[in-house]
């Protein structure tokens, strides 16, 4: 293998892994506090995509459109909490499971009915379609942006979690929710905040993910939801670091198989991927990174 091939292999894993890690983190931040999976998470990505599509004709520069799309994802994230979680979250897991699915279906069908079931294109800046040549390998600049963006987001997120009062409150709520309330952390605000952060991650993921695809369809959120779910399961549902590790690991597994398997076996790549996932879970049932024991569901 030449140095170029190795560089490409590493960059492929890093750029895909960065996306997966961000997707997983957005899902696990809500799970950490509520111990509930937000199945409408993928739709936040869809909503951001359609916001970009609808702003396509507007005179604003692309960065403003992207910002609007991310804000929209945050807004819908908060709305998910308000519509699907808040009214039933103290009742039963099943109820929330159903309401979050229902909200996801509602959003998907809204896109289907009011826009179109067919793909709609999203505006992208020129830099997303350019590429650079390093060591005889052509690398799309978008992949480098993805990696840089993820590092920035992860760094900022880790700073907020470790060094600010907000982060402390979030961590406290995640580990012992009732205790956190007793010492005066406003529960509803913390939960809303978690949904807002989840929306922020979804919004950024949407920009980078749709940057690869170039168009948005109503079902676009399914794959990111699935990826985020698997990544958090192998990384550890209780740990934020676990979600990031899980994301990069899943990308490593997928990309390695894509490179390494022969064509006949490549048809069954997902079977190989999930075999590894099962093996990981056999040896580490609660994921690679265990995280602290937490209190009951809130």
């Amino acid at each position: 293998m030449s140095a170029g091939t190795i560089l490409q292999f590493v960059l492929d894993i890093l750029s895909l892994g960065s996306l997966y890690a961000l997707m997983a983190l957005g899902l696990v931040i809500v799970y950490g506090i509520l111990k509930l999976v937000n199945f409408a998470y993928g739709e936040l990505i869809m909503v951001a995509g359609y916001t970009l599509y609808l702003l396509n004709a507007s005179p604003f520069p692309w960065l403003v459109m992207a910002l609007a799309a991310i804000l929209m994802a945050i807004a819908i994230g908060l709305m998910t909490e308000f519509v699907a979680f808040k009214p039933v979250r103290s009742k039963s897991v099943t109820a929330v499971l159903i309401t979050s699915f229902a909200f996801s279906t509602l959003l998907q069908n809204a896109a289907l009915l009011f826009i179109s079931p067919r793909a709609r294109n999203v505006p992208l800046p020129d830099i997303f379609t350019q590429s650079v040549e390093i060591l005889d390998v052509v690398i799309p600049i978008r992949n480098l942006i993805t990696i840089a963006c993820a590092l920035l987001m992860l760094g900022a997120f880790s700073f907020v979690m470790k060094r600010t009062v907000l982060g402390l409150a979030l961590r406290a709520a995640a580990s012992q929710f009732t205790m956190a309330r007793m010492v005066g952390i406003p529960a509803n605000m913390i939960i809303s905040l978690a949904f807002a952060i989840s929306g922020l991650f979804a919004g950024v993921v949407a920009i980078l993910w749709l940057g690869r695809i170039g168009s948005v369809v109503p079902g676009i959120g399914l794959e990111p939801l699935l990826v985020a779910f698997i990544a958090t399961v192998i990384g550890g549902m209780r740990s934020l670091l676990g979600a990031v590790v899980g994301g990069y690991l899943l990308a490593l597994i997928d990309v390695s198989f894509n490179y390494g398997l022969s064509q006949q076996l490549l048809h069954f790549r997902d079977a190989f991927t999930f075999t590894i996932v099962i093996l990981i879970l056999l040896f580490r049932p609660s994921g690679l990174i265990k995280g602290r024991e937490t209190g009951l569901r809130t």
């Binding site: 490409q8 492929d12 895909l16 695809i213 794959e223 990309v255 894509n258 048809h267 790549r269 997902d270």
Partner: peptide, 13 residues
């Protein structure tokens, strides 16, 4: 002949 898996959004390999 090359294989692709729908949903991957990754054609790099």
């Amino acid at each position: 002949e090359e294989t692709y898996t729908q949903g991957d959004q990754d054609f790099s390999a």
